[in-house]
């Protein structure tokens, strides 16, 4: 990467700076401008409903984690489709066959998941 391509990243750098600056400015401004009133009701976790009990460190079922994990796997699959999509015309039918074999193997996995009832998080 030379200096001319480096200039191309300037808008991204500015975007990052604005994003960070926005967070900092809003947090500082809300601290400075907001009224500071302490009341027990205000600092309660929930203002209505059931009172909170114990701490938040309760382990939950692993099936939610499994769903998230499987999402990441299919996320990676989609990422491999980006280079194909940008080269779609150059690769032609060959590329279609390649990605079809790639996707078919993962579709087998999806069929396996549906058969094993992994994606059903209701029970």
């Amino acid at each position: 990467m030379n200096n001319s391509t480096l200039i191309q990243y300037l808008p991204i750098a500015i975007m990052f700076l604005i994003a960070v600056a926005f967070v900092v400015v809003t947090m500082v401004a809300s601290h400075l401008l907001g009224p500071k009133k302490y009341s027990k009701v205000k600092y309660n976790v929930f203002e209505c409903g059931v009172h909170s009990e114990g701490n938040a460190r309760n382990p939950f079922a692993v099936k939610y984690f499994l769903t998230a994990l499987l999402f990441v796997l299919f996320d990676v699959e989609v990422i491999f489709m980006y280079p194909w999509a940008t080269n779609f015309k150059e690769l032609g039918l060959f590329g279609v066959i390649e990605v079809l074999t790639f996707s078919l193997l993962l579709l087998v996995g999806l069929y396996y998941l549906l058969k094993k009832d992994v994606l059903n998080i209701r029970d």
């Binding site: 499994l66 499987l70 280079p83 996995g109």
Partner: peptide, 29 residues
Amino acid sequence: NLGNVLFTEFLFPFEIVSVLLLAAMVGAV
């Protein structure tokens, strides 16, 4: 450029990745 190389020269590793992902899927389940 990456896609050009990936789908011609490194075709086999690309297809192997799907097997790897499948193995990860089955292993997680």
